[in-house]
Design a protein around this nucleic acid. Structure first.
Length: 515
RNA sequence: GCCCCGUUGGUCUAGCGGUUAUGACGCCGCCCUCUCAAGGCGGAGAUCGCCGGUUCGAAUCCGGUACGGGGUACCA
């Protein structure tokens, strides 16, 4: 795409929640034992990671980094990177958000394997597994109502006791079951310890009595997140679960489900969250921007990948690297445990470096993407040619594409130019007269190249007995309307003789010596 | 409340028992120079959260503590 080409983005089929759940998982109809064996032999050879966002809004920067880490890990090991949309919360999930997530990942260049999976489309399978657990005695029907549970918690809180609900239905049998809706709860161990071996956090241990009998299936028969993730990750053959460390405790609870089912645990890796510049956590409701916001601000995907990867992960002292290098270098062990703050200044710097490392053509394309994002027409025709020609000088001076576009004002502007304040200071009466004297020399300069115009202007400055800067600055002001621009002689070359003379004429008109 | 996790210059970080504590961003100065960038050179900025312990020796190991974060739902 840009200087650090990301693998071509596969356009997955539009998110197909309609496809019957079983179709997507060859293993869904296999007996559990078979499944497990199959995965064991498979997991040795191939890494499978996944990104599992819930479609309740745009893809925010924290989620993007989680996706990136999963992607880097899988791609660096010839593995698969899967995408699952956790849309079981029907009230908050929207197709627009799903599309925004796809769009964000595509822009970032994080391609996923196969179709995105709708978690909601798999409710049947979730229920099926819960039923299996019921039969095995690993789970039980709990008829406690939400009111009863709430009352229990209120009382526990009042007495300063742990608010863990102990269901009275845990050891009841069919003879005790009333004719009422019930939830399916995991029969979690009450003694011993639960240990999670985390690739980032290390070994983390909890006392089993800290865990409650979590609900697998709600009383309306739908699965809870805790249950659905486990079943989906297992069925999808996920070998490495890389996600935010807000899920660390969940990993312990989920490991209980894996254990009850007799399934192999994936490798867990809980990465720290990103904090805002103020140290507060960055979240959707607290300042986290969607990736498209970064696109619109003119950052390159390659720079985003570089910056995001560097946030909380390091490969020695390497700061500026390509995506290929990152995939090659990335390991879970090198991920930091502490949260990092998002720093725009550093992102900008990195973006500038990536822009400079980009080819002119690649930047032109990036500009097209930016234009499309801002819903404005792409630059075409002669101006596109000029832009391309001026690109080397432009990209050297910009930290974002937006800045580059702004600095290319002299290419897009129509005469007469808007002379800004600082430029106007370089265009007093004396300067205008001086430029008027310069005009005939420029008219005769041939060929019209930056070398020739420079030679001409330098000679002129000498005969005038002034420093080059005294000519160059007014010239720059007349030609670009600004006090800052790429080298004036390069500007002249891209603008062409006629346009240059016309612009000079615009500011010298009415002054002595005007030609 | 309880349970987990974290803490190295302003920021991101290197470090993994013995270093003048690494590099980068940002900031300041100089050079280069038609401006601005880029680039080059140099500088300021960290008693490695704090207190103990282990050790001949601790940023590195152990225990406390403070602060920050996360979790504790028929949310994900």
């Amino acid at each position: 795409m840009f200087s650090c080409p990301a693998p071509a983005i596969k356009r997955p089929e539009p998110f197909a929640a309609r496809i019957p759940a079983g179709r997507r998982y060859h293993s869904a109809h296999d007996p559990p034992g078979h499944k497990q064996r199959k995965r064991q032999s498979n997991s040795m050879s191939q890494v499978v990671t996944r990104f599992a966002p819930s479609p309740t809004g745009y893809l925010h920067i924290g989620g993007a980094r989680t996706a990136l880490f999963n992607w880097l890990f899988a791609r660096g090991r010839g593995g698969k990177f899967l995408l699952r949309i956790e849309d079981t919360d029907r009230a908050r999930s929207t197709p627009e958000a799903t599309e925004a997530i796809f769009e964000g990942l595509r822009w970032l260049g994080l391609d996923w394997d196969g179709d995105a999976v709708s978690q909601f489309s798999r409710v049947e399978r979730h229920a099926e597994v819960a039923r299996e657990m019921l039969e095995k005695g690993a789970a039980y029907r709990c008829y406690a109502t939400q009111e009863e549970i709430q009352a229990f918690r209120d009382e526990a809180k009042e007495k300063g006791l742990p608010p863990l609900f102990r269901s009275p239905w845990r050891d009841k049998g069919p003879e005790d079951w009333p004719d009422a809706p019930y939830t399916v709860r995991l029969k979690a161990p009450r003694e011993g310890e639960v240990t999670v071996e985390d690739a980032v956090q290390g070994t983390v241990t909890w006392k089993a009595d800290q865990m409650d009998d979590l609900i697998l299936l709600r009383s309306d028969g739908t699965p809870t997140y805790m249950h659905a993730v486990v079943v989906d990750d297992h069925d999808m053959g996920v070998t490495h679960v890389i996600r935010g460390d807000d899920h660390l405790t969940n990993a312990a609870r989920q490991s209980l489900i894996y254990r009850a089912l007799g399934w192999d645990l994936p490798v867990f890796a809980h990465i720290p969250l990103i904090h805002g510049p103020d140290g507060a956590k960055l979240s959707k409701r607290h300042g986290a921007l969607g990736v498209e916001a970064y696109r619109d601000m003119g950052y390159l995907p390659a720079a985003m990948r570089n910056y995001l990867a560097r946030l909380g992960w390091a490969h020695g002292d390497d700061e500026f690297f390509t995506t290929e290098q990152a995939t090659e270098w990335f390991t879970l062990e090198a991920v930091n445990k502490g949260a990092a703050r998002f720093d725009f200044a550093k992102l900008e710097n990195l973006n500038g470096q990536h822009m400079r490392a980009s080819t002119d053509a690649a930047l032109m394309e990036a500009l097209d993407v930016l234009a499309a994002a801002h819903k404005i027409a792409p630059v075409e025709g002669a101006r596109r040619e000029m832009l391309l020609e001026a690109m080397p000088g432009l990209k050297e001076r910009a930290k974002t594409l937006l800045e580059l576009h702004e600095n290319a004002y002299y290419i897009f502007a129509d005469r007469p130019l808007q002379i800004d304040e600082k430029a106007a200071k370089n265009l007093g009466a004396d300067a205008a007269e001086m430029l008027a004297r310069l005009t005939p020399h420029l008219r005769n300069a041939s060929p019209w190249t930056s070398e020739k115009t420079e030679e001409t202007v330098r000679a002129f400055a000498e005969t005038e007995g002034i420093k080059l800067g005294k000519v160059a600055q007014p010239l720059r002001a007349a030609l670009t309307g600004r006090a800052v621009s790429p080298g004036v002689f390069d500007v002249m070359a891209t603008l062409g003789r006629d346009e240059c003379l016309a612009r000079i004429d615009d500011v010298t008109a009415g002054h002595a010596g005007a030609a």
